[in-house]
Structure formats: structure tokens, C-alpha cells
């Protein structure tokens, strides 16, 4: 082999090797994108840094042993929102209550399927301010499971909760919000074809 030929040969091998390494990075990063899906949830749940309120979805606490803070009041406001794909009525029975941290309470939301067909929907919770999310414990919630309603059906849905006495002193008002959405994805396009009535905004 002449000198330039040899040079060319080693050059090619080198190129192949570098290309391979870079290609592996590409594949790895593509995988990393998908790995973000479980990782993101893990990190957020472990540290509570995710979207505000996401951690308030369903921790069961034993409220019998926690001390009730009789001398402290916290105001809880209830909010209800409907995704644009869902033509239901949805509102809290009470808009706000004052509670003692450590004591268990029960309130309820009302929902009614205004359409002429059965719908499976899911409520996604949110808590403001986000700092309160880890101190808001639900023992029972309609948001834990999907809700199925036949055409025209309506019902009260319970929500039981306890505020952790460790809730920081400066948080005096807490807003709990639920957004109900149709789990059937086609519904999005269906409702977009029909002009939505203005009344999709929540009432009550």
C-alpha cells in the first residue's frame, strides 16, 4: 500500500468510528426523550415540583390520630371548570368553607350529563397556591376514578379531605379546582364541529 492510500484507509476507519459514536448519541437522546415520560412523573412526585396541585391527587391519610387545630381557620374555595370537549353541568355545592387543619370534612360537587349519549369523563385537580398542594390530603374524591354518566344523568359526587396541620401559617386561603374532561378523544373534534353554547362556562 502506498502512503496516501494508507492514509486514506485509516481516515475512513476513523470517520466510521466517529460517525458511529455520534449516531449512538442520537439514538440515546431519542430514547432520553421517551425516558422523560416516567422520569418526569417520578421527579415531580418525589419532590412535589411538578405542576402545582398534581400531588394532591390521592394520598390516604389516617385523620383519627392527627391533632385538630381548633384555634386555626383556613378558607377553602371550590372551583369547577369544564374542558371545551365536555357538555356537562358541573359545579360545587358550596363555593367556600372555613375549616380547621387536622379535621376531616366532606363536600360535594354536582355534575350532569346534558348530552344524549353516555360519557366517560375524568376530573383533573389543581391547587392554588402550589405550596399548599402537599398539605391537602383527600381521603375520597370523584377525581380518583373516571366518572361514567348516561344521557341526562346527574348526581352529587363526594369529596373528603383533611388539611395537614403542618400547612405553613401564611397560607390562609386555598383554592381547589377541578377540570372535567371527556376521555374520548374524538369528542374534541365532535364538539368543534357543533358550535358550542356559551353556557359551557361553569355555573353555580
Amino acid at each position: 500500500m502506498s502512503v496516501p492510500e494508507k492514509r486514506e484507509k485509516t481516515g475512513q476507519n476513523k470517520n466510521r468510528k466517529t460517525t458511529l459514536i455520534l449516531g449512538l448519541i442520537v439514538v440515546g437522546m431519542f430514547g432520553f426523550g421517551f425516558a422523560m415520560v416516567p422520569l418526569y412523573r417520578l421527579v415531580c412526585n418525589a419532590t412535589g415540583i411538578g405542576i402545582s396541585g398534581s400531588s394532591g391527587t390521592g394520598r390516604i391519610v389516617d385523620s383519627s390520630t392527627t391533632k385538630v387545630q381548633k384555634d386555626r381557620w383556613v378558607t377553602i374555595q371550590f372551583d369547577a371548570l369544564l374542558n371545551e370537549n365536555l357538555r356537562w353541568d358541573f359545579y360545587p355545592e358550596v363555593k367556600k368553607i372555613n375549616v380547621h387543619p387536622g379535621q376531616s370534612y366532606e363536600v360535594s360537587y354536582y355534575a350532569k350529563n346534558k348530552t344524549d349519549h353516555k360519557i366517560v369523563a375524568k376530573a383533573v385537580p389543581g391547587i392554588t397556591p402550589w405550596q399548599a398542594a402537599t398539605y391537602f390530603h383527600k381521603t375520597e374524591c370523584f377525581c380518583f376514578t373516571q366518572q361514567t354518566m348516561d344521557a341526562g344523568e346527574g348526581r352529587d359526587m363526594p369529596l373528603k379531605f383533611v388539611i395537614d396541620p403542618a400547612l405553613p401559617e401564611d397560607i390562609k386561603i386555598l383554592t381547589l379546582s377541578y377540570t372535567f374532561m371527556d376521555t374520548n378523544r374524538e369528542s374534541i373534534r365532535d364538539t368543534r364541529e357543533v358550535e358550542l353554547p356559551v353556557s359551557v362556562k361553569h355555573e353555580g
Binding site: 437522546m29 431519542f30 430514547g31 426523550g33 421517551f34 422523560m36
Partner: peptide, 8 residues
Amino acid sequence: IIAPVLAG
């Protein structure tokens, strides 16, 4: 590094 993440 970044383009594969967007693709994902």
C-alpha cells in the same frame, strides 16, 4: 443532542 428529543 437536541434534535432527537424534539423528534421524540
